[in-house]
Nucleic acid binder design. Sequence first.
DNA 1: GGGTACATGTAATCAGTTACATGATTTA
DNA 2: TAAATCATGTAACTGATTACATGTACCC
Lengths: 167, 167
Amino acid sequence: MRLTPVSYIILGLVRHLGEATPYALKAAAAESVGNLWTVQHAQLYTEPEKLAAAGMLTEEREDAGRRRRTYRITDAGREALDAWLHAPPEGTGETRDPGLLKLFFGADPAQLAPAEVERHERKLAQYEATMAAFGATMPQGPRLALEAGIVHQHTWLAYWRALAGAR
Amino acid sequence: MRLTPVSYIILGLVRHLGEATPYALKAAAAESVGNLWTVQHAQLYTEPEKLAAAGMLTEEREDAGRRRRTYRITDAGREALDAWLHAPPEGTGETRDPGLLKLFFGADPAQLAPAEVERHERKLAQYEATMAAFGATMPQGPRLALEAGIVHQHTWLAYWRALAGAR
DNA sequence: GGGTACATGTAATCAGTTACATGATTTA
DNA sequence: TAAATCATGTAACTGATTACATGTACCC
């Protein structure tokens, strides 16, 4: 089985949580790694199943009630995750910002900028609140990623504010 | 037909070029909008065909030799593109940086940072060379997008350099 | 006990990717 | 004229998205 970034996200989250249902993964991803790499709701159900079939996770299912599936990481999963973490990153990051794409093709900066400024202000405030509340107790990885988010939001803000001001 | 970002990229490039073969689109995308939103080689053949079927482009084909297809934008295509440009951007940008994803899940910053620094240095140098050479004559949209690329590369550089230095 | 939010899943589709295959032109 | 490169395309696959469908727990 070919592992994708989403596979590693799920392996990483399950390892961190110890055990997790798809819904727990959804919640965990939403306010952490989801800011960096979105994972679709449906994938949180289909991908763990594939990973379990490949021996990277174990799956345990309730007999009654919601018949929830609970996943745990296996040694094989841990090894795959570690191997990925130690390998150099494949490919380069992409911006993929819909607003910037429109700007490229000639959209009016003054029309785009106010909404973008507001979006980035909100995001920045959210990141900084998280940092203030949990920064001291977060594991290093997520904290560094959060810091990256913060500096980028600052960059975006300065960029769009300049476009909102200039006319 | 549902138009995707890639559809609009092709419409935008064809409008700008006046007429274009898939190969011309490939060349045009490579060093401009491709830095912002990558488009797959195969899509440059399949997507214009779909757009032509939808009446957004016209397709003209050589009878002999390479039987190249040449596309031009139609009024319907122009309208669709303008409508998209005037509509507020749907969705928010994502970072999707493989290196940062690894950092999030606990990869060693000191191991990742040097390669990342080098990557971003290269990219920044490339952007700045383009800006120096063509900045004055580029249309506003692409120039603004290029500026965004430059400020982001600066941000990334500072970020990874700090991680390379700290131990 | 009725409504609402939370939670769990599956089916179908499609955009995007990968892999394959070949033709035309240029250059040595 | 052989090799290399430029150029053009298609087929098959699959990761991701969308849409649908329903069940369970909680609160009033």
